[in-house]
Design a protein around this nucleic acid. Structure first.
Length: 271
DNA sequence: AAGATTGACAACCGCAGCGCC
DNA sequence: GGGCGCTGCGGTTGTCAATCT
C-alpha cells in the first residue's frame, strides 16, 4: 500500500503558471491566508496540485520577495553560509531576506559554482581544488561529526533498526579551511554583522551577555548592563503580535524566525 | 538566416520530518 | 508505537531566450 498521490494528476495543469492562475492564488491567500495546501487548489478554483501552489506562492508570489539580481554582498553571504551549512538552501535563504531557497539554489548552480571553479576553488569543499586530496598534517586536523546526507541516512537507519544511531567520522582538513558539513562550533555565535535591519544596531552596541543573546531577559544569569540592548529586545518582541519573534522576524543569529525557529534547529542537531 | 549549443531559472518529483490519531 | 497525511526540502528536469557557428 503506497501513499496516496498528493493530487489527481489527470486533472491538474502543469508547467508555467498563467497570469490568471497567479491572480487566483494571490486572491485566495490574501483572503484566507497560507496553509492547507492540499485543499487550497480546489477552494481557490485552481487546476493545480497543492505542492505546485505552495511552490508558486513561496518562490514567486509572496509580497515580501526581493526580485532582481543578487548584490555582491549577497554573493559573499551565500558563499559564506554555504561553506558553513552546505546545500541547506532553506537555512541559507532564512538569512537572506527576500530570497528563496530555490532562487539561491539556482543562483549557486549557475553563477557562484562557476565563479568559484574559475578561481580554482572547489564549490563543494570551498578549498583550493589542488588541495582537496592533499593529506594534512596531524596537528591540523579536527574531529568532525558529519551532519551531511550520509549522516542523515545513517541516523534514519539507526532509528528504524537497532544499529548505531550515527556514524562518527574522522575527517581531516585544515582548521582554517571549511568543514565538509557543519561545524557545530558555529551554532552559537555572536550576532552576524549583516546588512539587514536591527542587527546593524547590534553590531554598533556594546555586546550583550550570553543570556541576552539567547533572549533571556531579566534573568539572574544576565551579566549585561547594556540598557539599550535590553530595551531593544523588549521593544522588538512586544511591538509585534508574535511574541516569539522580533518585529523584523530576525533573531539574535540573524535568522528569520518567521521561517526558521532556531530552537528547533538546535534540537535537530542534538538528536 | 537557420540550426546547434549554452545559460538561466521556473517547475516538478521524490523523500524525509513532523504532528495527529 | 506505528500508520497516515501534510508540509517542506533538495535534487533534477523542462523550457525558453541568448549566443554561437
Amino acid at each position: 500500500m503506497g501513499r496516496s498521490p498528493c493530487c489527481e494528476k489527470e486533472h491538474t495543469n502543469k508547467g508555467a503558471w498563467t497570469k490568471e492562475e497567479d491572480e487566483r492564488l494571490i486572491a485566495y491567500i490574501k483572503a484566507n491566508g497560507e496553509g492547507c495546501w492540499r485543499s487550497l487548489p480546489k477552494a481557490a478554483g485552481l487546476l493545480r496540485c497543492g505542492k505546485s501552489c505552495r511552490l508558486r506562492w513561496i518562490n514567486y508570489l509572496r509580497p515580501d520577495l526581493k526580485r532582481g539580481n543578487f548584490t555582491p554582498d549577497e554573493d559573499s553571504l551565500i558563499i559564506k553560509f554555504h561553506s558553513l551549512l552546505g546545500n541547506k538552501w532553506s537555512l541559507i535563504a532564512a538569512r537572506l531576506p527576500g530570497r528563496t531557497d530555490n532562487e539561491i539554489k539556482n543562483y549557486w548552480n549557475t553563477h557562484i559554482r562557476r565563479k568559484l571553479l574559475s578561481r580554482g576553488i572547489d564549490p563543494a569543499t570551498h578549498k583550493p581544488i589542488n588541495e582537496v586530496t592533499t593529506p594534512q598534517s596531524k596537528d591540523q586536523t579536527v574531529k568532525n561529526i558529519s551532519f551531511g546526507p550520509q549522516f542523515e541516512k545513517n541516523k534514519n537507519l539507526g532509528q528504524k533498526q537497532n544499529g548505531p544511531v550515527c556514524k562518527e567520522e574522522k575527517v581531516e582538513y585544515p582548521i582554517e579551511g571549511r568543514c565538509p558539513d557543519l561545524n557545530l562550533e558555529l551554532r552559537i555565535s555572536p550576532p552576524f554583522q549583516d546588512h539587514y535591519g536591527e542587527s546593524q544596531m547590534f553590531a554598533r552596541e556594546k555586546s550583550p551577555c550570553f543570556a541576552c543573546r539567547l533572549g533571556l531577559k531579566n534573568v539572574k544569569e544576565c551579566s549585561c548592563d547594556t540598557a539599550a540592548w535590553q530595551t531593544m529586545l523588549s521593544n522588538s518582541s512586544s511591538s509585534s503580535g508574535d511574541s516569539s519573534s522580533s518585529s523584523t522576524g530576525y533573531d539574535f543569529l540573524g535568522l528569520n524566525t518567521r521561517i526558521l525557529d532556531f530552537r528547533n534547529f538546535e534540537m535537530k542537531l542534538e538528536k
